[in-house]
Simulated assay, not measured.
Amino acid sequence: MPALNETIDTVREILGYPTYDISCQLVDEDYIKEINSDTLGMEKSTDVLSFCFTEYLIEQGVLKEVPSQGKMIGEMYCLGDMSVCVDYVANRCEEDRKSGIAIGK
């Protein structure tokens, strides 16, 4: 999945946190509905759900400095979890293709 890895690297660079991890899972429509219902109380499908894992969040997109303890502690350097619904995204891309909206480069 080189394209997905490249996209995640780009997102980390844009955010200004290139050394932080982002957990990304590709899920189906039933699973994204379950997550959306359990966490947000919304009984519907969506394209992406994301959840911040760090206690170092000051505000959206801004983290305070992680304390240095001589070595990196993995979980302190994880921005969070992102679930992408492949079914939902594929359906929207197909709808865009049919309507003539350009997708990609």
Rank of each mutant, 00 (worst) to 15 (best):
2 P>K: 15
2 P>S: 15
3 A>D: 03
3 A>V: 04
3 A>Q: 03
4 L>H: 01
5 N>T: 13
5 N>S: 15
5 N>R: 14
6 E>S: 12
6 E>W: 05
7 T>E: 02
8 I>Y: 04
9 D>Q: 14
9 D>A: 15
10 T>S: 11
10 T>R: 14
11 V>C: 05
11 V>P: 02
12 R>H: 03
14 I>R: 13
14 I>F: 10
14 I>H: 11
15 L>N: 08
15 L>T: 06
16 G>A: 15
18 P>T: 00
18 P>Y: 02
19 T>Y: 02
19 T>C: 00
20 Y>L: 05
20 Y>G: 03
20 Y>P: 09
23 S>Y: 12
23 S>H: 15
24 C>L: 14
25 Q>E: 11
26 L>C: 09
27 V>L: 08
28 D>C: 13
29 E>F: 08
29 E>G: 13
31 Y>S: 10
31 Y>H: 13
33 K>P: 00
33 K>Q: 07
34 E>K: 15
34 E>M: 12
34 E>H: 12
35 I>L: 11
36 N>E: 04
37 S>D: 00
39 T>K: 00
39 T>D: 00
39 T>C: 00
41 G>S: 07
41 G>A: 06
41 G>K: 12
41 G>R: 10
42 M>S: 11
42 M>W: 13
43 E>S: 13
43 E>Y: 14
43 E>I: 11
43 E>H: 15
43 E>R: 14
44 K>M: 11
45 S>D: 10
46 T>I: 11
46 T>R: 10
46 T>L: 09
46 T>C: 13
46 T>N: 11
48 V>S: 02
48 V>F: 08
49 L>K: 01
49 L>V: 03
50 S>Y: 11
50 S>C: 14
51 F>S: 04
51 F>C: 05
52 C>A: 10
53 F>Q: 05
55 E>F: 07
55 E>G: 14
56 Y>V: 12
56 Y>E: 15
57 L>T: 03
59 E>T: 13
59 E>M: 12
59 E>R: 14
59 E>N: 11
60 Q>A: 01
60 Q>C: 00
61 G>R: 04
61 G>S: 04
63 L>N: 13
63 L>T: 06
63 L>R: 12
66 V>C: 05
66 V>F: 09
66 V>G: 05
68 S>C: 03
68 S>M: 02
69 Q>D: 13
70 G>H: 14
71 K>H: 08
72 M>F: 10
73 I>R: 09
73 I>N: 08
77 Y>W: 12
77 Y>F: 15
79 L>P: 05
79 L>R: 01
81 D>P: 02
81 D>Q: 11
81 D>R: 10
82 M>N: 05
82 M>K: 01
82 M>L: 08
82 M>P: 02
82 M>H: 01
84 V>E: 06
84 V>F: 13
84 V>G: 11
84 V>S: 07
84 V>W: 07
85 C>A: 00
86 V>S: 09
87 D>W: 02
87 D>P: 03
87 D>Q: 02
88 Y>E: 04
89 V>A: 09
89 V>K: 04
90 A>R: 07
90 A>K: 09
91 N>T: 12
92 R>K: 12
92 R>N: 09
93 C>P: 00
93 C>L: 06
94 E>K: 10
94 E>Y: 05
95 E>W: 06
96 D>P: 00
97 R>N: 03
98 K>S: 12
102 A>C: 03
103 I>F: 07
104 G>Y: 00
